[in-house]
């Protein structure tokens, strides 16, 4: 009895939670007049018109923005995996002077709000002539700026038995070979988690592109969508919802493919501080 009640409640809550998103997708296939007259999740007149209007609604096609977003996100993934795994390896496996000190600082940066760093970073990138390029969005990721991922990987690396390293040392392997041939192959789960999270977060990011990208040519999909809100002056909701749907589509896909990984990633970072 209690069980049935809980079920009913959970189903109701999940329906309410999902409804806006489902409606967004449904409405993107509706003709404009239907959007404001129907709360239904099934379009009466199925039409791709909104997509056609949206795709070409800005002076530069949305295709270009998607490519920009894709390029940035992929580079960020590579940068994060490369630099954070190296740092995590140094912190967990190599003996050197000052390791504890640097590790404490790294944990400190986890807490450091980025806002305090923003303006000098901006000024620096401006002086380097990097503003309005993707460099400010990508290069920092090759410098392990996302301490969260270092932390995630440190937690994982600590679970790999040290005897494996020692066996490899006995086999004559140096730090680089141990890293490449033993640690990384065994860390696929955490690398995949980090990759998916950094892709999604970069894809979703709005603030950094807003600051660093001025030219519509260079816009990311998020930035383009936000510009599109102004461009349509909120009159073409169909096109807007269609483009909104498109920008979250990659995330939906990744979510469906890597659900387990994402959920476990969240759970482990929460549990093991």
């Amino acid at each position: 009895m209690v069980r049935a009640l809980i079920y009913a409640l959970l189903i109701a809550v999940s329906f309410i939670m999902l409804y806006p998103m489902l409606w967004m997708v449904a409405s993107s296939f509706k003709p404009d007049n239907e959007i404001f007259t129907s709360t239904s999740l099934i379009p009466q007149d199925f039409s791709l018109d909104a997509y056609r209007r949206g795709w070409t609604g800005l002076s530069v096609g949305f295709g270009q923005m998607f490519l920009n977003s894709l390029l940035i996100s992929v580079l960020v993934v590579i940068g994060n995996l490369f630099s954070c795994s190296m740092a995590a390896y140094a912190f967990t496996r190599l003996r050197f002077k000052g390791r504890g000190f640097w590790f404490a600082l790294m944990l400190g940066t986890l807490m450091m709000p980025q806002h305090a760093l923003l303006i000098p970073q901006y000024v620096m990138f401006l002086k380097l002539g990097w503003v309005n390029t993707i460099l400010p969005l990508v290069v920092p990721k090759f410098l392990a700026i996302d301490a969260f991922f270092i932390f995630l990987m440190v937690q994982f690396f600590r679970g790999i038995p040290r005897e494996l390293d020692e066996a490899a040392i006995m086999d004559g392997a140096g730090p680089l070979r141990i890293f490449l041939k033993v640690i990384l192959p065994l860390s696929m789960p955490v690398l995949a988690t980090a990759a998916v999270f950094s892709f999604i977060w970069t894809w979703d990011d709005f603030f950094a592109p807003l600051i660093y990208l001025n030219d519509i040519q260079n816009y990311t999909a998020q930035l383009a969508l936000r510009t599109f809100v102004d461009a349509t002056a909120q009159s073409d909701w169909g096109a807007l919802l269609a483009m909104s749907t498109l920008t979250v589509l990659p995330i939906f896909i990744l979510f469906i493919l890597f659900q387990r990984l994402l959920i476990e990633g969240i759970a482990t970072t929460g549990m093991k501080r």
Partner: peptide, 20 residues
């Protein structure tokens, strides 16, 4: 001398086989 240069092999209690 580094471990590998000593002409020594070691068998670990946990075996420490590379799982992958």
């Amino acid at each position: 001398k580094a471990a590998a240069e000593r002409g020594i092999a070691m068998v670990f209690q946990s075996y420490a086989l590379y799982p992958h």
